[in-house]
Structure formats: structure tokens, C-alpha cells
Nucleic acid binder design. Sequence first.
DNA 1: TGACATTCTTTACAAGTGTAAAGTAGTCTT
DNA 2: AAGACTACTTTACACTTGTAAAGAATGTCA
Lengths: 126, 126
Amino acid sequence: MSQRTQELTDAEWAIIQMVWEHEPVPAPTVQELLEEQRGWSYSTVKTLMDRMVKKGLLTTERIRNLMLYTSAITRQEAQSKEILKTLKRAFEGALTPMMQFLLESDHITHSELDELEALIRAKKSK
Amino acid sequence: MSQRTQELTDAEWAIIQMVWEHEPVPAPTVQELLEEQRGWSYSTVKTLMDRMVKKGLLTTERIRNLMLYTSAITRQEAQSKEILKTLKRAFEGALTPMMQFLLESDHITHSELDELEALIRAKKSK
DNA sequence: TGACATTCTTTACAAGTGTAAAGTAGTCTT
DNA sequence: AAGACTACTTTACACTTGTAAAGAATGTCA
């Protein structure tokens, strides 16, 4: 059980985000947190979370009758995996074209550009 | 049929990459091109491609007995969709953290950094 | 014209995903 | 102790995805 290098599905992303922010957290709380955003019923959330435990994405600890869920992978790990997937699939592994694409997409503000410039400069001087 | 704003699966990415590079292209050719990489049989490739037609990702044109496939979305559209998905899922829509993550992650070379810097500067002056 | 070869079509099937209803069990309140 | 809450468990079901075998149709060469 639980070979990690799993990919997260969309539903799993929604859930694990909440877990990262609130862990250790019981399923009902996660359901409430996602109510608005997704409109999932308790059953749905609980089912998803239990599947995630089986996959090794979350772990549980039982306190009396309450199950508390905790993430089993870090946000960084998950982000990294996700980005690499996109990089491989859509850009055939080439990082610069992907960055370029991001820059060119119109969703970037002037101040974000400044920030990035600073980041690059910092990176270069290292 | 064929509302577009579909996401591509992994198999679909593999196929459409070949289509972009060789279109208009018949299924057997795509199968040969992917033989090495994926080891898919003709049936598999053909099934996938026909599903993609149904989804509006590819179109076909029949010449006598040969079906030629052509992409119905551009590489840019697909890349954009893919990146936005990652951005939304994994970075809650925040572009700078994602770029930062990319910068900090792997082996960006010095010259790539230069390139990016230039891109940013160009973008800013626009 | 019959035998190959090539390509297309039909059908299938298991695993994974999104979604949840219904039933059960334990806890709290009066 | 009965009823009401709350949380957990079981079961289900349709749709998508990866994978392909088997059969049908068409074209080609001897």
C-alpha cells in the first residue's frame, strides 16, 4: 500500500489543500470548508478522503470516535509533481518555453513582473 | 457535440503532439510514431483518436479509404489550458508563486536566466 | 480471381473518478 | 432510557480512461 509518486486528481487537490491548512482535521470540517466551493455532501468528501488514505496521500488517527486526517505528502511535493507533469506533457520537458508561455499569457501584472525580475536576479547572484 | 474547453488526458497529449507535427496524418502513422514511446497497438491509437474526434480535439477528412486526422485546437490553446489547470489546482491561481517554484526547482542554467530576464524586460516595456 | 495486406469498425473490459444514499453506531440531552 | 445528533461504513452507479482483440471492408499483386 502507498507507493508514493501518485498524481492528485482535481477532487483530491481540493481536499488536500484544506487538509494542509487545517490538519489534523476531521472529515466533517473538510466538508464544511468545501461546501461553498464544491457543494459536496459529507458522504462524497468522506469517500474521497478514505480513498486518499488508501493511496497514501493522507493518514488518519482515531481519537475516540473521531477520525483526524493528516497529509502524508507536503504541498511542495505535490506542487512539484504537478508541475513536472505539465512540463512533460505539454512542453516536452522544456522549462524555458513553459516559463515563456507563462510570461506571455496576459494574466501577469506589472508588479508581478517586478517581483519575478527580483527573483531572477537573486537566483543569479547565488 | 464538441464544446471546447476540454482537458487532455495523458494519452491524448501523446497523440496530439504527433498530430501537430505531422498533420494531416492517418492513424497508422501516429501509431508507428508512438510505437517506441508507448508501445500501443493500432487499435489503441485508433480508439483514442476517434474518441478525440468525438470530443472535438481532432477532425477527420476521408480520402478514399484513408482517414486523415487534423488537430482542432492549437498547441497554444492546449498548453494554456494545461497550465491554467495546474495554476488553479496546485497554486490556487497565484502565478508568481508558481513561477517562483519553477525558478527554484531545477537546473535552470545561467543563460536561461538571462533569457528570462530579457523576456521580462521586453514584456515590461510593452 | 483469389490471397495478402492494410485500415477501419465494433465490442469489451478493468481501473479510476465523481458523486452520494442508506444504514449503523456512538454521544448528548432531557 | 428514548430521541436527536453526529460521524462513520457500506454499497452503488455512471462516466472516463487505458488498453486491445476480433471481425469487416477495401485495395493490391500474382
